[in-house]
Amino acid sequence: MTYAADRALTSVTAPYSPETNPVALAFDDSRQRMVDDQVRPLEVNDPRIIAAMRVLPREDALPENEQEFAYSDLTLPLGNGRYLLQPMVTARLVQMADVQPGQRVLVVGAATGYTAALVAMLGAEVIAQEEDEALLAIGTSFTSRASVDVSWSQSSLASGAPESSPFDLILFDGAIEEIPRFCSTQLAENGRVAGILRPNDGTSSAFLAEAEKDEGWSVRRFFDADVPVLPAFERPAAFAF
């Protein structure tokens, strides 16, 4: 798809338009360069993702002191051990998950809502789960300002969202060291789990998993991604003599 073509698609699908002021226009220019320089060269070719990322105001998903770095090729700190993932990691992760319109998706550790909003713009019914009150406040404001339909759930990340299950997709917006137990009981039939798996063997990669009959998981790994572990899913440090 050409640049002109995906910009044309953006004008049809985007729920958000930047205000016509110099700061907003500067962010818009940076947003286009982020997509062209960081996202498209890394085999992100889903036109829906490209279109959404061209308009979704990533700066609004950051604390004020981090907004100037919104379109940098960086994982950005949000506070309390939480992060907004690199744009290219988010784009590749969402593309790997193959989100389809009408699917029910739980985004675990949604933080300030950027990934949840992106998934919602692909036509999914999104429940964004977050336990940190400060991040939740930014996230609800962000999705509201961007006019993206996301339902928020404030609860312990380690428990999932049983009251809203089952889900076609459970997407972790950060790394986990193992697939939590709640996933097996909150997935719909043929549902999938996606995220970044970072076990203690030194690897860190994007994965898709499906439940097996013996209560295990069939896991496929896709691309390497060095992403911080969500604190709620860190294993307790082993005691050493």
Rank of each mutant, 00 (worst) to 15 (best):
T2E: 11
T2M: 05
A4D: 14
D6Y: 13
D6K: 14
D6F: 05
R7W: 10
R7L: 10
A8Q: 09
T10W: 03
S11C: 12
T13L: 13
A14Y: 10
A14M: 14
Y16K: 06
Y16H: 08
P18E: 02
T20L: 08
P22Q: 01
V23W: 13
A24F: 10
F27M: 10
D28S: 13
R31M: 14
R31L: 14
Q32W: 13
R33F: 09
R33H: 02
M34C: 09
V35I: 14
D37M: 12
L42P: 04
V44R: 02
D46E: 13
R48C: 14
I50D: 01
I50K: 04
A51S: 10
A51N: 07
P57D: 05
P57Q: 03
P57G: 06
E59G: 06
D60I: 08
E64R: 12
E64H: 02
N65I: 15
Q67V: 05
F69S: 12
A70T: 11
Y71E: 00
L74M: 13
L76P: 13
L76N: 12
L76G: 13
P77N: 02
P77G: 03
N80C: 14
G81K: 03
R82F: 02
M88W: 05
T90R: 06
A91C: 14
R92V: 06
V94Y: 01
V94G: 00
V94R: 01
M96V: 15
M96F: 13
A97Q: 08
Q100P: 05
Q100Y: 10
G102V: 07
Q103A: 10
R104I: 14
V105R: 14
V105P: 00
L106G: 04
L106Q: 02
L106Y: 03
V107C: 01
V108E: 01
A110C: 10
G113F: 05
A116M: 09
L118S: 04
E125C: 09
V126W: 04
I127T: 02
I127K: 09
A128R: 00
Q129G: 08
E130P: 04
E131T: 11
L136D: 07
G139H: 13
R145K: 12
A146I: 14
S153M: 15
S153D: 12
Q154H: 15
Q154Y: 11
S155M: 15
A158D: 11
S159M: 12
G160W: 01
P162W: 00
P162Y: 00
P162R: 03
S165E: 15
P166I: 03
D168N: 08
I170V: 12
D173K: 02
A175Q: 15
I176P: 00
I176F: 06
E177T: 11
P180D: 08
F182V: 07
F182E: 02
C183A: 07
T185Y: 08
L187R: 05
A188E: 03
R192E: 13
V193K: 01
G195M: 00
I196F: 03
I196A: 09
I196H: 08
R198A: 09
P199Q: 10
D201I: 04
D201V: 11
S204I: 07
S205Q: 05
S205A: 11
F207K: 07
F207A: 01
E212R: 10
K213V: 15
K213D: 14
K213M: 15
V219R: 00
F222K: 11
D226E: 09
V227R: 01
V229R: 08
L230K: 06
R235Y: 07
A237L: 13
A237S: 03
A237R: 10
A238F: 15
F239N: 09
A240P: 11
F241E: 15
